[in-house]
Each structure stands twice: as structure tokens, then as C-alpha cells.
Design a protein around this nucleic acid. Structure first.
Ligand SMILES: [Zn+2]
Ligand SMILES: [Zn+2]
Length: 340
DNA sequence: CTCTCAGGGCCATCA
DNA sequence: TGATGGCCCTGAGAG
């Protein structure tokens, strides 16, 4: 690879790009010393989230700053250390997603949100514990809705790359991509239940009962209920395609307010999952049909975005058409945060 | 063979 | 005392 970027002038070409140690070799694709190489590898291995105690801009060259694991790791990413072993085994990736998705679905079907869950925690950490729901519990719209949000966010934050993101980047991802992902999951769930319109597992509506459909444009309501689902039916989307497209949506690097390292991390993972989807398609449908199929699956994200904007429109119209029914609860707080 | 680099073991350091 | 990180070694692969 051509090295066109000129870093600080005092830096010798053989210095470690992260900590400036002399006589560094090549590790993970960049000029780096052995310590930084090992640090990077161990940082990738750890299951714990790394955080910065200061402002996420510690100077690694100064002995105080070099103690910050978060900032050192992010400098590794920033200078271009490759954090994905290439190429990945597609079936291992799919199995990992299958397992995470199964967990999400179990929580959604059998759990209920712990009463301790508060709005301000949801988009900060995105990890929740669920309590067992008793057999005869009947959820109303808002309880289903909150569970749908929490279990999807739980899934999103359990993805392998999320632990590398800073807290603010994590919030950006959840704020921009979570609702798209949740819409897709809801459509998928209705699709696997062979429904013709989106609904909750017990068949209840995806609109709260106080919504008076006749007060709205029928096309708008239909777009929310049916449009995306009809695309899934029409394409006969497989579970593998659902899983991979779901992650591709969650690791969209084009969302606003991301840090540069956050964008780089998401872009690499999105491209890795994209390649996996491509390989899956060409394996399942053959090389030519697979390439077309890949594009068709990717273009589902347009249908998801269309449903998203219909929901945004609806939630703008709702307080205008039915001001007497506006409620404030956890679900409406979450939705208000996501649609802005 | 030599060179480079990924990865693992071992041990010093520090809360 | 357990987590962390630096030093040194090994083995695989390329040339
Ligand atoms: Zn270094
Ligand atoms: Zn820091």
C-alpha cells in the first residue's frame, strides 16, 4: 500500500505509529512496535468494554496518556491497524448471529422488562436484564413495544464490534440505526408467523389501541403495516439474509456524529458482513443469480427506510389528530428520542 | 536458508 | 492477588 499521508515531521519513518518507539516493525498492517502489537491483539480479545476516564483524546506520546487503554486502542485503529482477520468463515459468522438472534427472540417472547429500566440508561449502555413473564401475562401495546426496543438494543450491543466503540459512538449508532433494525425485526417476525400485516406475537396491533385509523391517510397506515412485509414475502427472504442484512443496517458507518475511529470500525465490519452476504448468496443461488440476489436483499434497506419515515410521519400527525390521546411513558419517550 | 510477523509464555508492575 | 502490558521466543509462510 502506498504511504501518502505525512505524519508529524519529527516522526521517523521507522517509528511506531502509535507510541513512537524507535525501530518498529510491521504489525497488523502498520509500522508499530511489539508492545503496541500485543496491546492491540489483547484489546481485540477482551470481552470487556474499554473506556476512557478523561475526554477520549489522551496523548499516547505522553507517559500519562499512554496509560489510557481506550485512547491507545483507538489510535491503533486510527493509524490503520487491521482488526478483522481476513477472510472470515461465513458459517461461523452466521452461526454467531443465529445464536444472538435466538437469545433476542427468547427474551422477547418469554421475558418482561425489569421495572428498574430507566430511559436515560437505555441508550448509554444498552444492556438489560429481563425477568421471566408468567404464562398468563397479557401484554398491551406499550409493553410489547418496550420489550421490542429493549431486546433489539440488547442484540445490537451484543454484536462483536460494539465493545470497541466509545460511549458516544454507541449512542449515535443506537439513535440512528436501532429503529430501522427493530422495524426489520418486527417485519421478519410477522413474516415467519405468515401474517399479511405487521403485528405482535399474540396477533395484537402494532398501533396502540387509542389510534383511530380513519383519522389518517390510509396509505400511510398501510405503508407501516404492510409495505416492508410484502417485500419480505415477495423476495422469500431467508433467515441468513435477514440476520446479515440486520447487522449491515446496525453497522452503517454513514450515520451522523460518529467519531473517525467509530466510522472506520463500523465501515470495516459492515464491509465484512456485506462480503459474507455476497458469499452466502453466490453459494445458495449460484454466481450470477447470487450477485442479483445480493443487490435485491441490500435494497430491502430502502423499504425499511420507507417504513421508518412513515412511522416518523405518523408520530408527527398523531398529536395533531388525537391530542387527547398523547401519553408519556417509556415507549413514547424512546420513540421521541429516536425520531427527531 | 533468512526475514517478517502473528501469536503465546513468562514475569514485572500496580491497583 | 488478579489484571495489565512489555520482552522474548517460536513457528509459519514467503522469497
Ligand atoms: Zn508502539
Ligand atoms: Zn483516554
Amino acid at each position: 500500500m502506498l504511504e501518502l499521508t505525512i505524519s508529524a515531521e519529527t516522526e521517523e519513518p521507522r517509528d511506531c505509529k502509535i507510541c513512537a518507539t524507535k525501530n518498529a516493525g510491521f504489525n497488523y498492517g502498520v509500522q508499530s512496535c511489539n508492545s503496541c502489537k500485543m496491546f492491540f491483539r489483547r484489546a481485540l480479545d477482551t470481552s470487556k468494554m474499554i473506556t476512557c476516564k478523561k475526554e477520549e483524546n489522551c496523548n499516547i506520546l505522553d507517559p500519562e496518556g499512554s496509560k489510557c487503554r481506550f485512547c491507545r486502542f483507538h489510535k491503533c485503529v486510527l493509524v490503520g491497524m487491521k482488526f478483522i482477520d481476513s477472510p472470515q468463515d461465513p458459517s461461523a459468522i452466521i452461526n454467531d448471529l443465529l445464536h444472538k438472534d435466538w437469545t433476542r427472540n427468547q427474551h422477547f417472547l418469554t421475558g418482561k422488562a425489569a421495572s428498574t429500566v430507566k430511559f436515560k440508561d437505555i441508550f448509554e449502555r444498552g444492556v438489560f436484564l429481563f425477568e421471566k413473564k408468567s404464562e398468563d401475562t397479557v401484554f398491551d401495546f406499550y409493553e410489547w413495544g418496550v420489550m421490542n426496543h429493549l431486546t433489539c438494543i440488547n442484540f445490537e450491543t451484543s454484536l462483536s464490534f460494539m465493545k470497541y466503540l466509545s460511549k458516544s459512538d454507541l449512542t449515535c449508532v443506537l439513535k440512528s440505526s436501532h429503529l430501522l433494525y427493530m422495524i426489520f425485526v418486527t417485519a421478519w417476525r410477522s413474516y415467519t408467523a405468515k401474517k399479511e400485516f405487521m403485528c405482535h406475537p399474540d396477533g395484537s396491533d402494532i398501533f396502540p389501541s387509542e389510534v383511530e385509523p380513519s383519522a389518517y391517510n390510509e396509505k400511510l397506515i398501510n405503508e407501516i403495516r404492510c409495505y416492508l412485509l410484502s417485500c419480505l414475502i415477495c423476495l422469500r427472504v431467508t433467515e441468513e439474509e435477514f440476520l446479515l442484512l440486520g447487522v449491515i443496517i446496525v453497522c452503517n458507518p454513514g450515520i451522523p456524529d460518529l467519531s473517525q475511529t467509530g466510522r472506520m470500525l463500523l465501515a470495516s465490519y459492515q464491509s465484512m458482513y456485506g462480503q459474507t452476504l455476497q458469499r452466502y448468496c453466490s453459494f445458495k443461488y449460484g454466481s450470477n443469480a447470487g450477485a442479483l440476489r445480493y443487490l435485491e436483499i441490500i435494497s430491502l434497506s430502502t423499504a425499511i427506510a420507507r417504513c421508518h419515515s412513515a412511522i416518523a410521519n405518523f408520530s408527527t400527525l398523531f398529536p395533531i389528530h388525537q391530542p387527547q390521546h398523547v401519553k408519556v411513558n417509556l415507549f413514547t419517550e424512546i420513540l421521541a428520542f429516536l425520531i427527531k
